[in-house]
Design a binder for these strands. Structure first.
Length: 717
DNA sequence: GCGTATCGCGTTTTT
DNA sequence: CGCGATACGC
């Protein structure tokens, strides 16, 4: 069960942790980057469980799915199976679970389906065209901007009118159109029994406000509530936390105002400032020691944030004094930038840094395309985070649409998606058919009853036949999916002629996931709220390089970090012009730099390819220009000469990691002639005996390498 | 005339 | 890659 030794050693020796774990009542922890915010929460869970609090009564709220996995994993090391009983997850995930349980309280039927953001945009698209908006006027907001306005008014708890005048002033003359659209949008959703992400939180809050029983029950069920990254909460989330704890006030929130990077979705770091007023007798704890990064990295990070216009009194310090100076590399172009990264990764791996402890971070998803190409050539395995998730790609949405309409026949959006796949059926026809289905009780007879056009009748009948089979008898979700795949295969190959083999893998993967579900509805809910990640799902133990947007890297840490694309116009993002927007970009850079433990590389291309294949000169990011030259070291030549692109030789694609981190290596075992294995370089043989802590090994596929036993992950075969 | 196919354009970040 | 405008086919 509980490993008391770890708690005693790791927690009680740290004064801050002791304060954090033993304090009762509301606690606000203001903590800098790398100060162990998440650890603090995990230790508190451990402490509470040790005190006899039932794990089921603890609620841990985080923002990103990754962060919550990370946290539960850490908790698992302390609590083992107990931690699986702790309720942890994102606000939205927990909201979904609770709402499903208490839906009756609000008089909702059991059937409502959750739509994601892109679907919501689809609704707006339909409405906008049905209202005859948009085409007339180029200045009319894009669908994305409309979504931001409409859902932003919910998140920020602002009246739509105020929001438009404050932030979208140029749209003021279209306010009436936007209001009409908003009302249509709500009406449409109500009719279709659809909820989107924002409604989920609004309704959670409504449940707590309107149903005293539910509020009472939920508040008693969770006797201890903890929130990570509190600076990223919006008004509604703060309200929810307040109401959840109304019977006991046992709330601990952790946050850092310098890392507030989500204001674009309504996050409001004044929530942190307000916390002591919302909860009486709040105890405030500051954690200012950084346990993550070396002094040179921290010094650079401090310089970044020192340039911020609004400064908060928080000075980070570290006891890890020694370390390598952050490097800045101005590459010729993106290709050169990618090549630099590949070379440097090789040298880092040789130093013994595991591939999974190296991360490449960037501002926007597409900034890594060139690098991904280079990594592919090198056969270097990577995992990309941020950007499109598995279920967000078009082909996945296509197949999931079939499953969604099986759960909710009223889901007009998914019907549209399905029908548009038929050749010669466009938006207009699709809309007619789907509203015909929505008005009818039985899917199959509705489909059969619709008069099909001559040209597309044949393909349409295939679809009817599919649904007849899907609904003819009760089938397992996996079997239903199989039927859908059979039908979809042709369409799939037509739609994605260029790259369907690559996409096919995703479909297979989804099939594997479906096998684990008995109930189609729960599968649909899970995929809308918690999209599975592409590669990490099949965890085969291989270590992968991490490519991530900075937003998705929040809360994580790596031995070595590359921040790429630090060019003018890329970072800060070109459209960030007003003061507070630039400030948020700066905090973003700060977050990126503070992910690094030991090595930090900042790179930028001097030339960028524009969309029309023209080369354009790009300057260095203003954020780099602001830093004093002594906080980093400029690289003009290759850092390590030995590695270029390996043209013929390939890097091992399947790597098995036998040794665990921290396992002591016995230097006497590495005698000349011993067969060894390295996770990255593969198999090899010792050619020179141990000198100090170094040994020379000749690898079958990589030649001779001198490896340091304290770092390198070498194991005897 | 309506609806669909196609070409060209610009691309933030996410629960 | 999704969107809007334009061109073509029924």
């Amino acid at each position: 069960m509980l490993n008391a030794d770890i708690i005693n050693k790791e927690v009680l020796n740290e004064p801050q942790y002791e304060a954090v774990t033993t304090t009762e009542g509301p606690v606000l922890v203001i903590a800098g980057a790398g100060s162990g915010k998440t650890r603090t929460l995990v230790y508190r869970v451990a402490h509470l469980v040790a005190q006899g609090v039932a794990p089921e009564a603890i609620l841990l709220l985080t923002f990103t799915r990754k962060a919550s996995q990370e946290m539960l994993w850490r908790a698992g090391r302390l609590l083992n199976d107990t931690c699986s009983r702790v309720m942890g997850g994102t606000f939205h995930g927990v909201a979904n679970t609770l709402l499903r349980q208490y839906a009756g309280e609000l008089g909702w039927g059991a059937s409502f389906s959750i739509i994601d953001r892109a679907d919501a945009e689809g609704i707006l698209n339909l409405l906008r065209s049905s209202l005859g908006l948009g085409k007339k006027d180029k200045r009319f907001p894009t669908k994305r901007a409309l979504m931001n306005i409409i859902s932003g008014s919910i998140n920020k708890s602002l009246e739509l009118e105020d929001l438009v005048t404050e932030q979208y002033g140029h749209l003021a003359e279209h306010l009436d159109d936007i209001l009409v659209l908003r009302d249509h949008y709500r009406q449409f959703k109500r009719e279709q029994e659809l909820m989107d992400y924002d409604d989920l939180l609004v309704n959670w809050n409504r449940l707590l406000v309107e149903s005293r029983d539910a509020q009472e029950a939920i508040s008693r069920r969770f006797s201890h509530i903890m929130v990570d990254e509190y600076q990223d909460t919006n008004r509604i989330q703060a309200d929810i936390v307040r109401r959840l704890a109304f019977t006991h006030d046992n709330v601990m929130v952790v946050g850092d105002d310098s890392q507030s990077i989500y204001s674009f979705r309504g996050a409001n770091f004044y929530n942190i400032m307000r916390f002591p007023q919302i909860f009486a007798n709040t105890k405030i704890i500051k954690l200012e020691e950084n346990y993550r990064s070396t002094q040179p990295i921290l010094a650079l990070a401090n310089r970044i944030i020192a340039n911020a216009e609004e400064k908060y009194t928080k000075k980070l310090f570290t006891s890890i004094v020694e370390g390598s100076t952050p490097k800045v590399y101005g590459a010729r172009d993106e290709r050169d930038e990618a090549s630099f990264i590949v070379r440097t990764i090789y040298s880092l791996v040789e130093k013994g840094i595991p591939l999974s402890e190296i991360a490449v971070l960037f501002r926007s998803g597409f900034h890594s395309y060139k690098l991904e190409l280079a990594l592919g050539q090198e056969r270097l395995d990577y995992e990309k985070r941020g950007g499109l998730k598995l279920t967000e790609s078009a082909h996945m949405k296509d197949v999931i649409a079939f499953l969604r309409v099986l759960v909710n026949a009223q889901d007009t959006l998914s019907w549209n998606r399905i029908l548009l796949q038929i050749e010669k059926v466009g938006p207009a026809t699709a809309r007619k058919i789907s509203s015909h289905i929505a008005a009818s009780a039985d899917i199959v007879s509705a489909l059969q009853g619709y008069p099909a056009g001559k040209i597309w009748k044949a393909s349409y009948l295939r679809l009817v036949e599919l649904f007849r089979q899907l609904l003819s008898e009760s089938r397992r979700p996996a079997d239903q999916f199989e039927l859908v795949l059979n039908y979809y295969q042709d369409i799939f190959e037509r739609l994605y002629q260029d790259d369907f083999p690559k996409r096919q893998k995703d479909l297979d993967q989804l099939k594997a996931i479906m096998e684990g579900y008995e109930d189609l509805r729960s599968f649909i809910d899970d995929t809308t709220l918690d999209p599975p990640e592409n590669a990490s799902l099949a965890d085969d133990g291989r270590e992968r390089l991490i490519l991530s947007t900075i937003h998705s890297s929040k809360g994580l840490e790596f031995d070595a970090v590359f921040v790429i694309g630090l060019a003018d116009g890329r970072f800060p993002h070109g459209s960030a012009q007003f003061g507070e927007q630039i400030e948020e970009e700066r905090r973003l850079f700060y977050v990126a730099a503070t992910r690094a433990r030991k090595f930090l590389y900042l790179t930028y291309p001097r030339q960028l390819m524009t969309s029309d294949r023209q080369l354009r000169r790009a300057g260095m990011s203003v954020f780099l220009g602001e830093l004093s030259e002594d906080s980093f070291q400029r690289l003009s030549v290759e850092p390590v000469g030995e590695y270029g692109f390996s043209s013929g030789g390939r890097v091992a694609t399947s790597v098995s990691f036998g040794t665990r981190k921290g396992e002591k290596l016995d230097s006497h075992s590495f005698v000349v002639g011993a067969r060894v294995e390295h996770p990255f370089f593969g198999k090899g043989v010792v050619v020179e005996p141990v000198q100090g802590r170094s040994v020379q090994i000749s690898f079958d596929r990589h030649g001779k390498k001198k490896l340091h036993l304290d770092y390198a992950n070498v194991s005897l075969l």
